[in-house]
Amino acid sequence: MSDASGPLSKLLIVTPHSSGALPPDVIRTMLGEDAFDTEKREALLRRVFLEGDPYTDLIFNLTGAQQLSAPWSRFATDLNRERDDESDNGVLKLFDFDRQPLYPDSFHFTSQAREARLQAVWDPFERDLTAALKGKSLLIVGHSMAPYGPVLGPDRGKPRPGITLMMGAPGAPSFPAERVKAVESAAERAFADVLAGEAFTRVAVGDPWDSDTISVRHARQSGVAAFGIEVNAGLYMKEGQARPGQLAKLNAAFGVFAGLVLESLG
């Protein structure tokens, strides 16, 4: 629960890709009869968790702020896509980020199946997010990213920054342009100790992405200042496991960062 009168009470934090869960009907659609094979089912769930944004619900959790986390994996429905995005990496994905199929050969979504999935997952989350933004002055959407650009990324094979801030694309900003530099400086200060000595030390704006779909959509709809933040998974994951102590360090740094951003907004 959030403290309605605390310094973070005007902040809404959204983690749209933190879940590794899949609805039973989605598991069956992906695996067919193998859904009843415990080993294969658990392997699928582990795969989608690790290819999501693992542990971001913990990294970006702050006492006093309001938090909204996705109930289902991005591979059930990607909440950080527009509802009408029908590309194979859109709101209903057909492949993971290494271009490995999620569904059996020749699978495709019928218009009825697509609409049913969106009504079950995308629409309720969007309603909850819209309602949660009332009375807020800042929306931060928290993600993690692969250490190096994957097959499906815009930066395939390239090392990524330690922290990326997504403030909106040219012509479609989600955060006041005159305050972006202050947010970048706040990130450099807040995350300095976490980044020190790591392979990924850079704080970047707009690299490899300049915008976060949720931030842009809701900044436009509500007028609330919003941006996305990506944490390089190499800062806290190794060989599919969380590195000891790193989640707590990132969470503490994010708390400092969020406080500095709120201060800059007045």
Rank of each mutant, 00 (worst) to 15 (best):
D3Q: 12
S5L: 14
S5W: 12
P7L: 10
S9F: 06
L12K: 11
I13C: 07
T29R: 15
T29C: 11
D34L: 10
E39N: 08
R41S: 03
L45H: 03
L45E: 02
V48H: 08
V48C: 04
F49M: 01
D57Y: 00
I59E: 02
F60P: 02
G64Q: 09
A65S: 13
R74H: 03
R74E: 07
L79I: 09
R81G: 05
D84Y: 11
D85A: 08
E86D: 14
S87Q: 07
D88Y: 12
V91C: 07
V91N: 04
L92V: 03
L92S: 05
K93S: 07
F95D: 04
D98G: 11
R99P: 00
Q100R: 15
Y103V: 08
P104R: 10
P104L: 09
S111M: 08
Q112F: 12
E115A: 11
E115F: 01
A116H: 13
R117M: 14
V121L: 15
V121E: 09
P124R: 09
F125Y: 15
E126N: 14
K136N: 00
K136F: 09
L138Y: 06
A146L: 04
Y148N: 03
G149I: 10
K158M: 09
P159H: 02
R160F: 00
P161H: 01
P161Q: 05
T164G: 12
L165D: 03
G168S: 02
P170F: 12
P173R: 10
A177S: 14
E178G: 03
E178F: 02
E184C: 01
S185M: 10
S185Q: 15
E188Q: 15
E188R: 15
R189L: 10
R189P: 00
R189K: 13
A190K: 11
A192E: 13
A192R: 15
A199W: 04
F200Q: 09
R202P: 01
A204C: 12
W209A: 05
T213I: 11
V216I: 07
V216D: 05
H218Q: 12
A219M: 12
G223T: 09
V224E: 07
A225Q: 10
A226Q: 09
E230S: 03
L235K: 03
Y236N: 01
K238V: 03
K238F: 06
G240D: 05
Q241P: 00
P244V: 03
G245V: 09
Q246F: 02
Q246G: 00
N251Y: 01
A258E: 08
A258H: 05
G259L: 08
L260C: 00
